[in-house]
Design a protein around this nucleic acid. Structure first.
Length: 489
DNA sequence: ATGTCC
């Protein structure tokens, strides 16, 4: 095929149907190899070739596939072409240690055996230095949720998790707390008007400095995701993500925020980096799995050497996704602040799906993966949410090295999503919420309060890790999904 | 958790 095919600029209308129907499976049917190139190609097409009609796109994709070396310098197709050429760095196989080094477990008998097993496997990696399991742990891909793993000079994309930079953000306001009950409908409407979940995004996204970051130009996968990142900015995700109004009770008179003891009106949000982080995570874990080959049961723990080009690129992309997640929270809080006509007095926030460069007891640099774990170095401030009907906590880290300066990221599930959907009744959940005085917009049975562990027990398991500064009681909650639990009158 | 791939 001629190169000129890549310069097509038709304006046919049929392309929309085709783009909607184009899937990774179709790319594979076209002859594309399974692996990182699939996700990359899909987002490149979304970003730059939406205008092509079906046949043209097919020709284009086949052309690059058949002769990738011809296209490595192409502005948009270059990244696909390079991804099709033999992987840089020879694939290497690694064996696991026979026995796992010891690691601290918080929450003993309450931890699911599968999560424990996954942590043991992670500790058997040759790059594993230290590990710890938080009391809210449950099974995940690769590293369990609630797993903390320190490695040397290597990063495991699935040790960070799919939702890179998933985090908490709380704003505390100087507003009379009774307002929340008195003007309940107004606050409920604010959540309806100024938050978006799942597939829904804002018609007019607000621009943000993070979208100007050079990584969006310099890293091919990030470049291909920028349009969607712009569309999704300021929105929240699905699953356990939420935005809620509630009441904070400050219980530590010597808190860093100079907040007098007492009750405050607050906004709490839980969300991550949306499609941007998910696509980055999936792209680099596939890349890692190509170069770092591990026994089947450990394959999702594939890592990237931080000295390698791919490792350095992931590190930059991960940080970009983390900052994007942070920007989303800030916009959520800014929209609500404007609706309330009140600026926040205090903002508290932390990542709980991320990797950091930290130091071990000997002063050597380690890469600390926290996948569903809150940083709790000495004096670090963070938020551990409970459930819709139980409190969350503002905490101060004690800097316990046994936990690798970490603490839980929530209560943790006791019931799987599948089990919850099958066994819980909407009526019972609704009554439970009513009794607790919670107004809920959205959500599904799989996020009902009873699917979570008792947060008080979880906190009891981590007394050595954090001290409590304040307690947050949710009142009006919005999550992703239909409006079946809406309690507005 | 996530338009898509697994």
């Amino acid at each position: 095929m001629e190169k000129s095919v890549v310069n097509f600029n038709p304006t046919h209308s049929k392309y929309i149907e085709y783009i909607m129907a184009l899937s990774g499976k179709k790319l594979i049917r076209l002859g594309y190899p399974e692996g990182p190139v699939i996700g990359l190609a899909l987002s490149v097409i979304q970003q730059h070739y939406k205008k092509l009609k079906k046949e043209e796109l097919n020709i284009l994709l086949k052309t690059v596939l058949e002769n990738p070396s011809e296209y490595t310098e192409h502005e948009y197709l270059g990244s696909i072409a390079k991804s099709l050429l033999p992987p840089q760095g020879t694939p290497k196989s690694f064996e696991l240690r026979k026995n796992n080094p010891a690691f601290a477990i918080y929450g003993g008998a309450d931890i699911e055996p599968i999560a424990l097993n996954q942590m043991e496997t992670a500790m058997c990696l040759p790059i594993a230095q230290e590990g710890a399991l938080m009391p809210d742990a449950h099974p995940g891909y690769g590293l369990p949720i609630g797993g903390v793993l320190a490695t040397q000079n290597a990063v495991i994309p699935y040790g960070v998790g799919v939702d890179i930079g998933c985090r908490m953000c709380m704003s505390i306001y100087d507003l009379p707390t009774q307002k929340l009950e008195q003007d309940k409908n107004t606050f409920t409407k604010m959540l309806m008007d100024h938050t978006r979940f799942g597939h829904a995004t804002f018609q007019k996204p607000i621009d943000h400095a993070v979208l100007e970051r050079k990584e969006f130009k310099e890293i091919p996968i990030a470049q291909s995701l920028k349009d969607r990142a712009y569309k999704q900015i300021g929105s929240s995700g699905g699953g356990n993500h939420f935005v809620e109004f509630g009441l904070v009770e400050i219980v530590d008179a010597h808190n860093e925020y100079q907040l007098p003891l007492g009750e405050y009106l607050a906004v709490l949000s839980h969300s991550g980096s949306r499609g941007l982080g998910a696509s980055i995570a999936n792209y680099y874990t596939k890349l890692a799995m190509q170069t770092c080959q591990l026994p089947q049961h450990a394959k999702h723990l594939a890592w990237l050497d931080l000295d390698s080009e791919a490792g350095q690129e992931y590190w930059l992309a991960m940080n970009l996704a983390g900052d994007y997640a942070s920007a989303c929270h800030h916009q959520i809080h800014e929209r609500l602040s404007q609706a309330m006509g009140e600026q926040a007095r205090v903002r508290i926030e932390n990542h709980h799906n991320f990797a950091w460069k930290e130091q071990n007891a000997q002063g050597d640099e380690i890469i600390v993966h926290r996948k569903g774990a809150t940083p709790a170095g000495k004096g670090a401030l963070g938020i551990i949410p409970g459930s819709m009907t139980s409190p969350g906590f503002i905490v101060r880290g004690k800097g316990n090295s046994l936990s690798i300066n970490s603490t839980s990221h929530g209560a943790g599930r006791v019931m799987s999503r599948t089990k919850a959907k099958k066994n819980l009744s909407a009526k019972v959940v609704k009554q439970h919420l009513q009794k607790a005085g919670i107004t809920l917009i959205g959500s599904g049975l799989d996020e009902a309060p009873m699917v979570y562990k008792d947060i008080h027990q979880v906190m009891a398991h981590q007394k050595e890790l954090v001290e409590i500064i304040g307690k947050f009681i949710p009142k009006i909650v919005r999550m992703c999904g239909d409006h079946r639990f809406i309690e507005v009158d």
